[in-house]
Design a binder for these strands. Structure first.
Length: 783
DNA sequence: GTAGGGTTAG
């Protein structure tokens, strides 16, 4: 016998007949003819030995290949089943397909094993051959085969199996019916699923469970309840699986109250919640309000000893993350003895959701160090985490790193990454991600498409955004809103309105976000009456109640058009307390229009709501400075000092030759800083000479001399333009993105630079795009 | 031989 340590042949062809010398022979008898000898060996090996090892199986396989004994169906079938016993499914499949004579029982038995193996997809390589040979598939194997088709989404094969079931008179079998039902539900062939169900004379509890879980998951509350009633009327009681399916379905479709009610009914029916029920029910706990229910379920899980189940724990982690109970979330994770990748991912996502980027990145790096096999979900989570928390450059870097180590981004990764490109207008990287989606065959994905529209829009490429939109094979409300948002940012009211009419024509219902985009667009474009009309239309024609962001847009719309008092009246008439966005819109308009009185009211409210936001103090201070009210400036500055509020540094990005450069106001660390400053100073001299004196109207006035000089050319957007000027070809356009609103001083300087240097400059600030061309700005100074 | 669970997306 070969020792187990002996290395296995690398391939069947490598097995030599001399390898058989070590095998036991029967009573020392040796056959003389080589063919006979092989046959004896094979006989001994396969039929007399009780449990041939994998090595022996491979030897036998090698023998029949060499000696032409392959025609012996019985031997081949035996080898086939031995391979299956040793979980060598790919070899078994290849062997069966290579046999000249194939019989239906070998196919059926191998398909049956494969469907339960880690290689269910191999079933799909056997089925076409079997169907082509018109071989009969064992009816007992049909349900598991359909299950494979369902899980792999192989719709056409499943449909063929349905036809076979009908022609072989098997369509009345309850198992086959339930399997067909499940198959059509999985393939989202709703009508066919319903047909199968309706044709069942007596649906079983399994069939009811499948259809109930699906109806609940589609959010059809009424349909689910009716079906449940019908089931009970026909004398079939739901079991644990039925209840769990209902709970999971309602949780997923965003009906937490229905899920809770099912949980209650389950309890009343005497069914005990198992760990699958726990992990199905937890996702229904969506926010702080439901946290009590979540805590109860956690207590119950501890009592039952469910917390060691990875699914239960990751559902708990997710629940605590959504309820913003982060300490408990981390505790659940840290107290687990065995963590799987799902739990690690849930933790990273939970930290990300709560803005704990540093902790998320630290944990992620620790997982890498501990050789946790991070998958595409883990990487997507950490990329999303950075992109959602302003760490855009790190998101891009992580995206690069994941590909470098061979983790392939999927159609979720891309919509997570693209906002990072959009935030810092990293057009080259965004385009490269676009290229990736085309190569990966994701072009039809509606989430990917919508994220690309958003990215192109925010990178200043509104025409490319529209091209993307027009090419999408299917669109949803997100796609439409991305396009509307793009037009809003570019102040293109005409196009936005055309888009809106197109939505109405194509019966795409606008949602609350669509109206936010429209109102913001009208605000950018200064179309007060249109804005008022849409605000009204939203409620009367679409039944959408105005939310905080709609009020903020209206305040901005009115106040930027100079109707400050009307804006203030509007705020006072709001049905709920205005938030910082609403007061913030009023305060920035007060700065533009120099209204001290209203500015003080808005600022006072903002200081209450967000005492540590430096931007509000700076705005108020600027309003005072513009009027020469130095004691006001001083008061604000002292208040900032008292509270320890520091100015949020201005930060701009510019992309030069595939590389994003970040410039921070007052930070001189960029390698080219000396040249940048020289260039800007030269421009400053020219501006002075030609009478375009930089107004220091918008800068904090009462500052030390050194700061004043820094302010003159230290603003980050100016530094970025300076860098662009010294490092790109003459005449080529510059695109700059800023984390704050562009200041008046810079606005004037950009106009000058665009003419003096003959450059098109596109600056995106928090609000909108400003296209500077030949001394003018697209916003018509309405910034 | 058929039905139920956790993690990434505006």
């Amino acid at each position: 016998m070969p020792s187990p340590a002996r290395s296995l042949p690398r391939s069947i062809a490598e097995v030599d007949s001399s390898d058989l010398s070590g095998l036991p022979t029967q009573g020392g008898r040796h056959a003389h003819h080589p063919m006979q000898r092989h046959a004896v060996h094979l006989h001994q090996l396969l039929h007399l030995h009780p449990f041939p090892s994998l090595f022996q199986t491979q030897l036998a396989h090698g023998q029949i290949l060499k000696s032409g004994l392959a025609a012996e169906a019985c031997t081949a079938t035996k080898i086939l089943s031995l391979y299956a016993n040793h979980c060598r499914f790919p070899e078994a499949t290849a062997l069966l397909l290579s046999l000249p004579d194939q019989d239906s029982s070998s196919f059926s038995s191998l398909i049956s094993s494969l469907s339960r193996s880690p290689f269910p997809s191999l079933v799909l390589s056997l089925l076409p051959r079997m169907l082509a040979l018109s071989l009969h598939l064992d009816p007992l194997v049909l349900p598991s085969t359909l299950k494979v088709c369902a899980s792999l989404g192989s719709e056409s094969t499943g449909r063929k199996l349905h036809a076979i079931a009908i022609t072989s008179d098997l369509a009345a079998d309850t198992f086959i019916q339930s399997s067909l039902l499940h198959f059509y539900l999985k393939c989202k062939a709703k009508t066919d699923a319903r047909k199968v169900f309706d044709r069942m004379p007596h649906p079983s509890v399994v069939a009811y469970s499948a259809i109930l879980a699906d109806t609940a998951a589609r959010g059809d509350v009424c349909g689910t309840k009716n079906m449940l009633e019908q089931m009970q009327r026909s004398g079939i009681e739901p079991n644990t699986i039925t209840w769990n399916g209902l709970i999971a379905g309602f949780s997923r479709s965003g009906h937490p109250h229905e899920a809770a009610s099912m949980l209650q009914r389950m309890h009343l029916a005497g069914c005990v919640l198992d760990k699958i029920g726990v992990s199905s029910a937890l996702p229904a706990v969506g926010d702080e309000e439901d946290a009590r229910a979540g805590l109860q379920i956690h207590g119950y899980s501890i009592k039952c000893g469910f917390e060691e189940d990875e699914c239960v724990s990751s559902a708990l982690i997710d629940m605590y993350g959504k309820c913003r109970i982060t300490e408990e979330m981390i505790k659940v994770f840290d107290e687990m003895r065995h963590r799987d990748i799902g739990t690690c991912n849930a933790l990273v996502a939970g930290l990300a959701r709560n803005g704990l980027v540093g902790e998320a990145l630290m944990r992620f790096k620790r997982f890498q160090k501990e050789s946790v096999e991070l998958n595409v979900v883990s990487w997507t989570s950490i990329v999303a985490c950075c992109a959602q928390n302003g760490r855009d450059m790190e998101a891009l870097e992580l995206f690069r790193e994941m590909q470098e180590i061979g983790v392939r981004p999927n159609s979720v990764t891309i919509p997570c990454l693209l906002p990072a490109c959009a935030n810092i207008a990293a057009l080259v990287q965004g385009k490269s991600a676009h290229g990736f989606t085309i190569r990966a065959g994701m072009s039809a994905d509606v989430y990917v498409g919508s994220a690309l529209i958003d990215m192109y829009g925010k990178c200043g490429k509104i025409k490319d955004a529209r091209k993307m939109f027009d090419r999408m094979p299917s669109r949803n409300i997100v796609s439409w809103n991305a396009m509307l948002g793009g037009y809003a940012m570019h102040g293109r009211a005409k196009e936005a309105m055309e888009m809106f009419s197109m939505m109405e024509k194509r019966r795409q219902q606008p949602d609350s976000i669509s109206f936010t985009c429209m109102l913001s667009c009208f605000s950018q474009a200064g179309l007060t009456d249109e804005g008022r009309r849409f605000f009204h239309k939203m409620k009367t024609e679409h039944g959408i109640a105005a939310r905080m962001e709609h009020y903020a847009c209206m305040v901005s719309l009115l106040s930027r058009a100079g109707k400050l008092d009307e804006a203030y009246q509007f705020v006072k008439g709001m049905p709920f307390d205005p938030d910082s966005c609403v007061w913030g819109a009023l305060l920035s308009a007060c700065r533009v229009h120099g209204n001290v009185k209203l500015g003080e009211i808005a600022a006072e409210n903002l200081f209450q709501l967000e005492p540590l936001n430096a931007g509000n103090y700076v705005l108020l201070s600027n309003i005072y400075a513009a009027k020469g009210m130095w004691e006001g400036v001083d008061r604000v500055r002292k208040e900032m000092k008292r509270l320890g509020v520091r100015k949020n540094p201005g930060c701009s990005w510019i992309e030069i030759e595939n590389k994003i450069h970040m410039l921070v106001a007052g930070d001189k660390s960029h390698a080219e800083m000396e040249k940048i400053v020289q260039r800007l100073e030269k421009i400053g001299v020219e501006m002075k000479r030609l009478g375009f004196l930089p107004s220091s109207w918008f800068a904090l006035q009462d500052v030390e001399e050194q700061d004043k000089e820094q302010m003159l050319c230290g603003h980050s957007e100016k530094l970025a333009v300076g860098l662009g000027l010294i490092s790109t070809r003459r005449g080529s356009p510059l695109r700059v993105t800023k984390n704050l609103r562009i200041c008046g001083d810079c606005h004037a300087a950009m106009k000058f630079i665009s003419r003096f240097e003959e450059r098109e400059i596109l600056v995106r600030d928090t609000n909108r795009f400003h296209l500077f061309r030949d001394g003018e700005c697209s916003c018509g100074d309405f910034w």
